[in-house]
Design a protein around this nucleic acid. Structure first.
Lengths: 140, 140
DNA sequence: ATAGTTATTGTAAAAACTTGCAATAAGGAA
DNA sequence: TTCCTTATTGCAAGTTTTTACAATAACTAT
């Protein structure tokens, strides 16, 4: 769990408390390169800290996202997933079959800049799933 | 319920069946200018057709979205909402306080075109909620 | 080290959403 | 109209996500 200590100063400087639950969850995210559902995180983190409960996982992931440590996403089916806030990319999901492909964040950079200046919102960077119809389903 | 009959030819030509459930749900969407949650749609459409059930509402809204008649969206909190596929606009939600503002679809037109050509996906137009930090929460 | 403050957690229950399967009824053919 | 086929629905149960509130345990200051 040691590698999660790298987040301690950041959390503490924001006035938040360091709890074994948060450490266990950060540790799980830290050691996965994929998106994880709250359920995935729960099952893995529970091994480190058996007293962990599911509502705490949901709340902690939300907490991490609000503070920029984790990036939330929605699958094409609307399910929640999280990953550490590192790689910026997005998905397009087929509204017919659900199949997903990645789109590089680069394509969105401009848009985000313009949205920020017109709306006044900052740090627009959320991992988003767009919807379309995939080449396969276009035939049918 | 008469105004929903305007969708009959379109549905029938795609080989789908016309059911009172579908008509009642279309009628509700047709007479609302706001986004409605499945629960909202259920409560309203049930007045027209009391035998209606909630799973049918979820399935029908999904069905309408897949066929381009309804537009699905996710609120800042991730909740499902639907509206008729007419006005194109999007939201930015504050990841701290949840407050939402609208962004015109115009801003996204270009992006969608480029995403379509690089991915091969078609009809990318989904109503999306982006995340950022609103001016208010930027102060705190 | 100890006590006080309050952020964070666990518990329990609700709300939101999904799924499998048998029953129903819409649309096509006789 | 009547029968047939099968898309669509209802039912029942499951999974996912959220919420209220009391109990716990980080941190701070003594």
């Amino acid at each position: 769990m040691s590698c999660a200590t790298e987040y301690v100063p950041q959390l503490r400087s924001l006035g938040y408390r360091i709890t074994p639950q948060r450490m266990a969850i950060l540790h799980v995210l830290r050691h996965s390169d994929k998106h994880l559902s709250p359920r995935d995180v729960y099952k893995k983190a529970k091994k480190d800290f058996p007293r962990l409960t599911e509502p705490t996982v949901y709340r902690t992931l939300d907490f991490l996202a609000k503070n920029g440590l984790a990036r939330p996403a929605r699958t094409g089916k609307g399910r929640l997933q999280y990953e550490l806030a590192q790689t910026d990319h997005h998905h397009i999901a087929c509204r017919v079959c659900g199949n997903e492909v990645e789109v590089d964040h680069q394509l969105l950079e401009n848009l985000y800049g313009r949205m920020e200046s017109t709306s006044g919102y900052a740090r627009i960077d959320s991992h988003v799933t767009f919807f379309g119809v995939c080449p396969n389903c276009q035939k049918a």
